[in-house]
Amino acid sequence: MTGDWSAFGGVVPVLAGSPGAGASVVTAVLADAVQLLAWRVLMVDTADPVRSGLAAAPVSDGPWSAGPHPAVRIRHSWRGSALVARLETTVPVLAPEMVPPPRFWASPVGQPQVTVVDVAADLWRLAANPLDGPGAWLRQGTPCPRPILVVRATRPSLLHAEQVLHRLRVWSAVGLVTMPVALIVVGARRWPPGVVGVAGTHLTPLVDGAVFLPHDKDIAVGGVTGLVTPRRLRDAVLPLLRRWGLAAGVRRLPGVKGALS
């Protein structure tokens, strides 16, 4: 039941370890950083359209393609040179199991080198059965996905994340899903005193190598738009991209303002 990810390049699922952690922001920051490094990027938004944190992310809309059901289809749009794939549906509420499996999200304009996925679902519920819907992006396969867990620098957020990882570990132990390999902390520059101590067995290995995404007041107020994400946020994820061989020798990303074109 492992996946063939060759049509997507390197797959980076982004998971919110707790409610409101900021997974959509991290998805946009990663996609912007990678495309500015001249990699071909596919950004996947699995959220119900009315609840998407990336609804305003595309700069220009493109065509849509059919999904597994007549009421669900995928719109392909552009954010600079990154292709954005997001859901469109005529049903009032889109249940997680109605989200099309990964094969429906493949790029119609050439194979990406990196696919960044906003796994927009309640991760606690998803971890109960992560093999369908948005959880399908966690399937082990070739090349192996690199899931990122997103948290806030708070005790409740880390406690939530620890329980989620405990639930996912059951599926990982039988070779079905890939556990998060990196931790991104949104809205902070360092761990506040007394927070890291609540990390349990599953979260502790990710804590020391955590990447901190500092607070940005414009994104905090306005969310992700068609404007390029701030340079200091993109620079914050560079160590992670270097670790994965996507930014070798790069110290800072190009300064870009306004909409990606």
Rank of each mutant, 00 (worst) to 15 (best):
M1S: 15
M1T: 13
A7K: 11
V11R: 00
A16R: 01
A23Y: 06
V29P: 00
L36F: 15
L37I: 14
D45P: 04
T46S: 07
D48F: 12
G53Q: 01
L54A: 13
L54Y: 12
V59L: 10
W64S: 15
G67R: 00
G67H: 04
P68I: 04
I74A: 07
S77Y: 14
R79H: 14
L83P: 00
E88W: 07
V93L: 10
P101H: 11
P101Q: 13
S107M: 08
P112L: 08
V119E: 13
A120F: 06
D122T: 02
L123C: 10
W124C: 04
A127F: 08
N129R: 15
G133M: 01
P134S: 12
G141S: 10
G141F: 08
P143I: 10
C144P: 09
P145S: 00
I148N: 02
R152N: 07
R155F: 02
S157C: 07
Q163R: 15
L165W: 11
R169D: 15
R169W: 12
R169K: 15
V174P: 07
I184T: 06
G187Y: 14
R189Y: 10
W191D: 03
P192V: 02
G194R: 10
T201C: 01
T204C: 10
D208A: 14
L213Q: 05
D216S: 06
D218N: 12
L233Q: 15
A236N: 03
A236Y: 00
L238S: 08
L238T: 13
L241F: 12
R242Q: 15
W244M: 11
G245H: 04
G245D: 04
V250K: 02
P254K: 08
L260N: 02
S261E: 14
